[in-house]
Nucleic acid binder design. Structure first.
Lengths: 190, 190
DNA sequence: GTCTATATGAAGATAGAC
DNA sequence: GTCTATCTTCATATAGAC
């Protein structure tokens, strides 16, 4: 029991370090050595905890999904109206301004990278995207019951992904500010 | 002279094949062998024409920029109003529906991939993006002289990049149709 | 100019000593 | 359970035969 617990802790250290690493490095350019260095676990020992690199990615995505679900249920509990929750969502890139400009949206960039050649990995990574999508659909259903919540949720994701992508390419924080403001106006006009 | 010309032709064959390859394969996962196979040039000979892989990328981007400029000046010549030119631009993802859903926007995905770790290459790839941006600014200046053309151009790019990214992740052509329609409405309302 | 053969290095993964 | 040493594979890039 104790031993098992300790193993789980080490795994979590690896996962957290890799999660962090994945923000500024692409998955395919990220080596076992990079992970070993970042997590301060001896290079060879990684292979005991995770057989393959893909296994680590799997664990990282599971961890991220868990974190995202926690954040969203916190919002559900602490923010009263669906409109304000949606506004809060729209502001994510604003709060992560520096990261977005330097590394893009962590979910979007990972999905795009894996989507190009590794369909199995893409499906895994897509889970992160779907957590947001389902939550958005719920919020829009509550916010404007008569309208097509699915379509509105997708539109929200489109604008959020788009502004992150363009701000990253142009390395321009102003784009985030302007575009988030535009999303807020759109939400309030619904 | 003759010899030089022939060399240039071979280079173009390599560049075109790599351009094509880059639509479905990420740059970092693309090997010289892949390029050799795609262009039907013996593996070792590639290194005579291009010293490094980055040199090939450089040539591919230059080629793409040239093609894009050609397309845009064709539009300038054949399409009368700036609004119709902008509508034509908005429809690019619609005409490339299958490619977008399978591989994403070729410009956006390349920029995002290179942006994460290779700043020198990112700057090169960004040229493609800027060709579109400058052209859009010109069109918006002509279309709605009083308004902030730069801001409108960026917004157009945001929506275009966003819809490509989300349609790619979700592998859903309907998203392209719906979102392009929304862009058209927005343009007509300006 | 063309292409083969090869140098060199780094990656993922494994076997097995401790 | 932990970690070292190593196997294998595959990449870029070069030297030099044709």
């Amino acid at each position: 029991m104790r031993a098992r617990e300790k193993t789980e802790q080490i795994k979590l250290v690896i996962v957290k370090a890799t999660d962090e690493l994945l923000y500024h490095k692409s998955y395919n350019l990220m080596s076992f050595s990079d992970i070993a260095e970042a997590s301060d676990i001896p290079r060879g020992n990684l292979n005991y905890h995770f057989k393959t690199k893909d296994d680590i990615l799997l664990a990282v995505v599971a961890y991220r999904v868990q974190q995202m679900n926690k954040m969203l249920s916190d919002w559900d509990a602490s923010i009263n109206s669906p409109l304000e929750r949606l506004l809060r969502f729209a502001q994510i890139p604003l709060n992560e301004k520096n990261n977005v400009v330097q590394h893009g949206c962590p979910i979007g960039t990972l999905n795009q990278e894996l989507g190009k050649v590794q369909p199995e990995l893409k499906a895994i990574s897509k889970q992160q995207f779907d957590v947001f999508k389902q939550w958005l659909i719920k919020q829009f259903s509550d916010f404007v019951p008569g309208q097509d919540a699915q379509k509105l949720a997708v539109h929200m994701l489109v604008r959020s992904q788009g502004l992150s992508a363009v701000a990253f390419i142009e390395e321009d924080k102003k784009i985030i500010e302007t575009e988030v403001k535009a999303i807020e106006q759109w939400l309030k006009s619904l």
